[in-house]
Design a protein around this nucleic acid. Structure first.
Lengths: 240, 240
DNA sequence: AAGTGGTCTAGACCACAAA
DNA sequence: TTGTGGTCTAGACCACTTC
């Protein structure tokens, strides 16, 4: 259950205490030296935990002053990471959201899919097309492709729930990072069929290229959002 | 000129060597132990530089194997950072881009601007409205607000060039991080006046909340993009 | 078994902020 | 001057990959 890494445990503990109000917004955390006593560890290990907290937007480090607790309540959306649908679900409340699987099966990659997955055409891939209904309206269409080599087995039932829970939980796939591209495209017939688009004739397309720890690309997903329901939040550090 | 921090110097050096092909894509960097000899420093310092490289998307660390050099040529857009217009300019070639200043001056923040800047109404702010013309078409409208307290002096001429060059170069403002929100909104009359919108009746709005190192918010900028010309790329690490 | 990156330590010196 | 976070060191042990 608990993380094996000391600095991650400390990060988890501190982020919990920030979220439950033990450490309130705009207050200063105990100093690094104090924390290293509290957690009975070295200062560098504390610093690793604090660096994580800063990267996730929980604190802001101020040289000579301390670590300022930021206002996490302002940030309801995931912070600069994979926007897996599961996160969206938990932040909105599960009951209002429905997932429909429209297409599910194995196929050979055509040229277009192959180029997105940086693989050869004819490679076997799972294709999954799902729509997401929120508060009664179908507003997101997810088109996903997974390399069969990495995901040997998949069912429609899994796709109706959380694919990521399965990939990370059951398959224990070492998922590492994703490149995301956001563009706007004109609606396709498929969009019109599976989404409640009203008057809109464009969709916001979020393209996700998901890599494993060994840097191989194994998933390409296109999330097509109705314009008025799209929102993306990114909490970015300065370049350097 | 040169960065004072050893690990940043090493980062700069390695990223240069990756970009100029000294270390080619898909090859493995010298090991951490080798690098610590090459740069005559400790392994932890090398690791800091490598961590930076990984965060910026230059390499992928593989436990037990080494640091894999990624294909940087694929990423033309800024990586998960401030998309300052200057970066956009340099990546597209300066000549094709024109900036027009439509509004420039001091004002007292109204309630709307004040709430975005998390300050009180009546606070003095600079308001700058600029359009960006790329290859002959006006496609981005930037509405910026700067707190006068942080930016005491500003001219129209500065706004016609790079405000950030001025803020960081002349004023030496310690700019640290930005929260970004992306949404789609219906066009306003202002959009129609300053942009070549053709048939489009929506714009992609990128809201930038820019903070200083002491965590104070000092700028709010809304970049309003014509739908078809918008593109956002984010290279994100996994949550943990 | 040897080499790699990942974690952790105990100490040092520095730059910055506040009293 | 004191306390803070930022950098750096030299060494240790671990987990993983490769041979």
């Amino acid at each position: 259950m608990t993380k094996s890494n000391k600095y991650k445990q400390i990060f988890e503990d501190l982020s919990k205490k920030i979220q439950d109000g033990t450490y309130t917004a705009n207050s200063i955390l105990p100093s690094e030296n104090e924390l290293s006593v509290i957690y009975a560890t070295s200062r560098e290990t504390i610093r690793k935990a604090l660096t994580l907290l800063a990267q996730k937007g929980f604190i802001q480090k101020l040289r000579g002053k301390g670590s300022l607790v930021l206002d996490v309540s302002r940030m309801s959306f995931p912070i600069s990471g994979l926007v897996s649908f599961k996160e969206l679900q938990t932040s909105m409340g599960r009951d209002q959201i429905e997932t429909y699987v429209h297409e599910f099966g194995l196929m050979r990659a055509d040229d277009q899919v192959a180029s997105q997955l940086e693989t050869s055409a004819k490679e076997e891939v799972w294709k999954v097309v799902r729509s997401r209904q929120i508060s009664g309206e179908r507003i997101i269409l997810d088109k996903s492709y997974f390399l069969k080599e990495q995901v040997p087995f998949l069912t429609k039932e899994i796709c109706e729930n959380s694919i990521y829970e399965y990939l990370e939980g059951e398959l224990e796939l070492p998922i590492d990072f994703a490149k995301k591209e956001i563009v706007v495209e004109e609606c396709t017939d498929e969009d019109r069929e599976y989404l409640d688009l009203d008057k809109y004739d464009h969709v916001v397309v979020v393209k996700n290229f998901v890599h494993l720890k060994d840097a191989t690309l194994f998933e390409y997903t296109e999330s097509r959002h109705r314009l008025d329901m799209f929102r993306f939040v990114d909490f970015a550090r300065r370049k350097h």
